[in-house]
Computed example of a mutant assay.
Amino acid sequence: MKLFSGTINNLENSLNYSNLKQKVIAQNIANVDTPNYKSKEVLKTSFQSELKSAMQAFKTDTRHYDFTNASARTSFPVVQNSNSSYNHNGNSVDIDKEMAELAENQIYYNALIERINGKFNSLRTVISGGK
Rank of each mutant, 00 (worst) to 15 (best):
T68K: 13
F4K: 12
E12T: 11
S5N: 07
E12W: 10
E114F: 10
F47D: 01
M1S: 15
I113M: 06
F47C: 01
V79Y: 08
A111K: 11
G118H: 06
H64V: 06
I8T: 11
V93Y: 05
N117D: 12
V79T: 11
M99G: 02
F67V: 04
K97G: 00
S39M: 14
M1I: 15
N81F: 03
A100N: 06
A103K: 03
S5P: 05
K21R: 12
A26N: 06
Q48L: 12
Y37G: 05
T74C: 10
N81T: 00
S39R: 15
K21V: 01
V93Q: 04
A54P: 04
A57T: 14
R73K: 08
E98K: 00
Q48P: 00
L123F: 04
N19V: 00
H88D: 15
V78Y: 08
N13Q: 13
L11P: 09
G118A: 10
N19P: 00
D94E: 05
R63Q: 11
K2A: 15
L51N: 02
D33W: 11
E101Y: 03
F58W: 14
N121H: 12
I25G: 02
I116Y: 08
H88N: 15
V126R: 07
P77I: 13
K44Y: 14
I116G: 07
L112N: 11
V78E: 06
K23N: 11
K52M: 07
F67W: 14
T74R: 12
K21D: 00
N36W: 10
S18I: 00
A26C: 02
Y37Q: 05
D61G: 03
M99A: 02
I127R: 01
T125V: 10
S71V: 10
N117R: 06
L20C: 00
Y109I: 00
I8R: 13
Q22F: 10
G130C: 02
Q106E: 07
F58K: 14
N31V: 03
N81E: 05
E104K: 05
V126A: 13
P35E: 06
I116P: 07
S128K: 08
L3K: 14
G6D: 04
M99L: 03
I113T: 14
G118R: 05
T34Q: 08
R73V: 12
N69V: 14
T60S: 14
R73D: 14
N13K: 06
N89G: 11
N105A: 01
E104P: 02
L15H: 02
I107A: 09
D66R: 09
N121Y: 10
T7R: 08
L51G: 02
